[in-house]
């Protein structure tokens, strides 16, 4: 050891210091960065796994819903509403109840925010219809019950009753049914077979 000259010894110290600053320190910093990055990747992978597990759980819940219930849900909240089919349904209801349908008009689809107070602003597109008839008071109550029990929502937004000359009640009502305000989902229209 003592064979080295002082100059050589100082040179060794210099080389050691140079290695420390030129290689060891940057490499150590790089390793720290790589370790941090690895940790981030591991955490993100863990998050993705958790989300994947959660998704699997939710999918199993969705799959547990019976086909009939799913079809009913899609009928209750359709992606689109065919006004003609709804009018046909209303006509069928009146025909089945043997009530005279004096007028039925479709007001078309409103904007999703057109009626903010009447479900319109809740991501639903209202489709309005107006109808008029003349029925007795008891028949009116039956009609309302049947409309309420429909398998998709037929919401009566306004109802006017006035006596008519025939002794019956002249009824004018404004109805609304709703479709989901979406363009991404595959359309399931009212009246169509469920997917």
């Amino acid at each position: 050891m003592s064979n080295y000259s002082l100059f050589t010894q100082l040179g060794m110290i210099g080389v050691a210091v140079a290695i420390l600053f030129v290689y060891i320190k940057p490499t150590y910093t790089a390793i720290q960065t790589t370790l941090d990055t690895t940790q981030t990747y591991l955490e993100e992978a863990d998050k993705v796994k958790k989300v994947d597990d959660l998704l699997t759980e939710k999918v199993s819940k969705v799959d547990a819903v019976s086909a009939a219930d799913m079809a009913a849900l899609k009928r209750y909240v359709p992606d689109s509403v065919d006004d003609v089919l709804v009018m046909k349904d209303l006509q069928a209801i009146f025909a089945a109840l043997a009530f005279p349908l004096e007028g039925l008009t479709a007001g078309g689809a409103g904007a999703a925010t057109a009626q903010p107070g009447v479900l319109g602003g809740a991501g639903l597109v209202p489709h309005t219809f107006s109808l008029s008839t003349k029925v007795s008071y008891d028949d009116l109550k039956t009609l309302l019950k049947v409309l309420e029990a429909n398998n998709y929502l037929l919401q009566v937004n306004s109802l006017s009753l006035a006596p008519s000359d025939s002794g019956l009640i002249g009824v004018s009502m404004s109805l609304a049914t709703f479709s989901r305000a979406t363009t991404t989902a595959k359309a399931v229209a009212v009246g169509e077979e469920p997917l």
Binding site: Y4, Q9, I13, A16, L20, Y23, I24, T27, Y28
Partner: peptide, 19 residues
């Protein structure tokens, strides 16, 4: 000084390899 220089040199070499 020789001990220090030798130790430092060897330590730097070993640390570099390990790193």
């Amino acid at each position: 000084i020789p001990i220090l220089s030798y130790a430092l040199f060897m330590a730097s070499i070993i640390a570099s390899g390990a790193l």
